[in-house]
Design a protein around this nucleic acid. Structure first.
Lengths: 337, 337
DNA sequence: TTGAAAGCGCTACCAA
DNA sequence: TTGGTAGCGCTTTCAA
């Protein structure tokens, strides 16, 4: 009885390709990488390509970058907090822009360690650059990454970190914009809706602080209003509205603003008569309810810009860290304020 | 004149650690990996840790997995289309669940090649498993990945692919659910709003087809209504509403539903009197306008479930591909239908 | 024009 | 208990 040999499909290496093509591994490498310093005959070239295709050969990225001593990988830890669609679009742009500059963008799931701890995990991948959303890294972490060969570390968040480039996104500007507007409209007792959900403090704290800053030195008062994102919570807040004595409210974003506005209207509170309402992020949603919602439109830089910054930094790792303020906030006045 | 030596901070390797600790590289490896097969004296252990810390040593993941012959990397190409918050939550869950099983989840930016072409790029990273959102891969691509050592390929999308496990998300179920409901409410001329934006066809086509299927064999008629996501487009559609002669509409999702409903109301069309409206995805938004929007709630599997499927598949790569229908659709009736 | 061989950083086998 | 060393897959220098 014949023994049936089950062919375990071992991953083909360049050695396999060389053997099948009847050439050396070196030649295979030359051909597949189109090395210009070496001239290979057309017939050999064909044989190698043929063999590679036949075996379904795919080069081993790790081996390659190990040999090369560097990679073209840009690492971007995925933010732990859900961020808006604006930000997703920015990320998409960024990815294709970096792709155009021949980098490979890899997002790394941040389940597990945090902060400088996480930086060690990132460093194991030996990325050429790291883009850190939020401020979830310290100077220590930056140092670890640089030691591991990262030629650029860029933070996208509220504050700069020593040794890293920074795209500062100062959300106090958003609150300040709203606050200034409400004051100009003659409002003096301003409530600020802050999400009851955990995890959004990174954005909500600064937005609240921005309103406070706008009110500073005036006779206006600012009241913090925590609000979970449920109809019940909104109704409950609306029910005790008269006792709060507020004539304006700035909500964390349009969603919270609409939730509250609806509840206020159901409770008989007039908008903008009794209370002016301003949201943020300029979602379509805000144009559907009546009155239409005034909002703070937030602008992010183009992904192309950031991609170019990364590329510059990679090419000149010694250069001074670039620190740039990139968050634009403009008020879009509609009917609610 | 003394020469100033600029110390270029070369990335420390295990050799550096060994030298500083006065031991061999083997010992360093044993200590840092807590190899249980070998007993190392407490003092050596301390010296090694000390040296590693002092140098800021971080192991080289590529070298390690090259040596090991396999990785614990689960690769997930990032979807090219913007997907809902439901899906983002699912991804988050999935990441931490896989993290708990000691896998490293890496999202890979899909700017550039598509389909089986892209599969080659993914294969270069030698992931142990690949999770492909959408159906952007064919049997060829699956084969390439398996050749490259992937022990599991899982598609998350509308149809299965030969050789890969499949989490089938059949969006016709969503449309079918809405259609059945509208028919039961006595409606017979059903419009279906389809996003005017490109890229969402993957979801919108099946949802439309689902309504058609529900209407099949009845005397009801289904009309496709393309609608870009702008107020102007909605107003324009609402203006020619009377001529369409429809008594019901199912919109791609709650956002499009609300946009249209608002425009219809502005035009004097009564909801649900003149026309019943049903959305999808059960967004909070749907509860804010009046009448409250009926919607199809979509349920995805838990990230934990998928993580376990991946783990099973990795442990038993020979097993039959699992194919599972995972998209649940239930109608949430509110006031608009 | 092609091949032999060194070596990137790491782990694991075998010896001492 | 520790060290020597082979070799993972690849690129690149040097020789032929």
């Amino acid at each position: 009885m014949p023994t049936v040999m089950v062919q375990i499909p071992n991953t083909p290496t360049s050695t396999d390709v060389a053997r099948l093509a009847g050439v050396s591994r070196a030649t295979v490498s030359y051909v597949l990488n189109n090395t210009s310093a070496v001239r290979i005959s057309e017939s050999t070239r064909r044989r190698v390509h043929e063999a590679a295709r036949e075996l379904g050969y795919v080069p081993h990225a790790a081996a390659r970058s190990l040999r090369a001593g560097h990679s073209r990988t840009v690492l971007m830890p995925t933010p732990t907090i859900p961020v808006g669609s604006l930000y997703s679009r920015f990320l998409g742009e960024l990815q294709s822009a970096l792709g155009g500059l021949d980098y490979t963008v890899v997002q790394y799931g941040t389940a597990g360690p945090r902060g400088d701890e996480a930086a060690r995990a990132w460093a194991e991948l030996r990325p050429v650059a790291v883009l850190v959303p939020g401020a979830d890294i310290g100077p220590q972490g930056v140092a670890v990454l640089k030691r591991a060969g990262a030629r650029a570390v860029v933070t996208l968040g509220p504050r700069r970190v020593d040794g890293a480039h920074a795209l500062l996104m100062d959300h106090t500007a958003v609150g300040h914009c709203a606050g200034t507007h409400l004051l100009a409209r003659g409002r003096r007792r301003i409530g600020v809706v802050v999400p009851g959900e955990a995890g959004l403090e990174v954005f909500s704290r600064p937005r609240l602080a921005g309103v406070r800053r706008a009110a500073h030195g005036t006779d206006a008062a600012v009241t913090e209003l925590p609000l979970p994102y449920t109809e019940e919570a909104a109704a409950e807040l609306a029910a005790r509205w008269p006792r709060l004595g507020l004539d304006a409210v700035f909500a964390y974003n349009d969603e919270y603003a609409m939730l509250l506005m609806r509840a206020l209207q159901d409770e008989g509170v007039g908008v903008p008569g009794d209370v002016a309402v301003v949201g943020a992020d300029d979602l379509m949603l805000g144009r559907l309810l009546r009155p239409r919602l005034s909002t703070v439109r937030v602008e992010l830089p183009s992904g192309q810009d950031l991609a170019e910054l990364v590329d510059r930094a990679v090419r000149d790792p010694g250069g001074d860290p670039e620190v740039r303020e990139v968050l634009g906030a403009t008020l879009v006045r509609r009917a609610s304020s």
